[in-house]
Amino acid sequence: MPRLFTAIEIPTSLAQRLSLLRAGLSGARWIDPDNYHLTLRFIGDVDGITARDFTHALGEIDLPSFDLRLEGLDSFGGRKPRALFARVAPSEGLEALRRANDRAAREAGVPPEGRNYMPHVTLARLRGAHPDAVARYLEGVGWMQSQPFAVERFVLYSSRNSIGGGPYVIEAEFPLSA
Rank of each mutant, 00 (worst) to 15 (best):
F42N: 08
P64Y: 04
A135R: 11
R115T: 08
E113I: 00
R79W: 11
P175N: 09
R103C: 06
Q145C: 14
R125F: 04
L4P: 01
D74R: 01
G24M: 02
T122N: 01
G24N: 04
G93E: 00
V46F: 02
E60V: 07
K80Y: 10
G48H: 11
Y137G: 07
S146I: 04
T39S: 09
E173D: 13
M144G: 15
W30P: 07
S13C: 12
A28D: 00
F76L: 10
A135S: 15
F149W: 10
E113P: 01
R127Q: 14
P112D: 04
P90A: 01
F154Q: 14
Q147G: 12
S162P: 06
A15H: 02
P111W: 02
A86D: 03
S162C: 06
E152Y: 10
G109Q: 03
S91Y: 05
G109D: 10
N161S: 15
L18P: 06
D62W: 11
L123K: 05
A178R: 14
L123E: 00
A172I: 06
E152V: 13
G142N: 06
L25A: 03
M118Q: 15
F174W: 06
Q145P: 10
P64G: 03
N101D: 13
L84Y: 07
S13F: 12
N101A: 15
A129R: 00
R103M: 08
A15M: 02
E9D: 13
A7P: 03
D102F: 00
L97P: 08
F54V: 06
H120Q: 10
T39V: 06
L94Q: 10
L14I: 12
S75M: 14
P81W: 01
L73D: 02
A178L: 14
D53N: 15
D32W: 05
W30G: 05
S75K: 14
G109T: 04
A96H: 07
T122A: 02
E152R: 12
F174N: 07
I163L: 15
A23N: 15
E71F: 09
P119R: 05
M1K: 09
R136Y: 14
L176S: 06
V134Y: 11
G93V: 01
R22H: 14
E139W: 15
S13A: 11
G77H: 04
V88Q: 08
R29H: 12
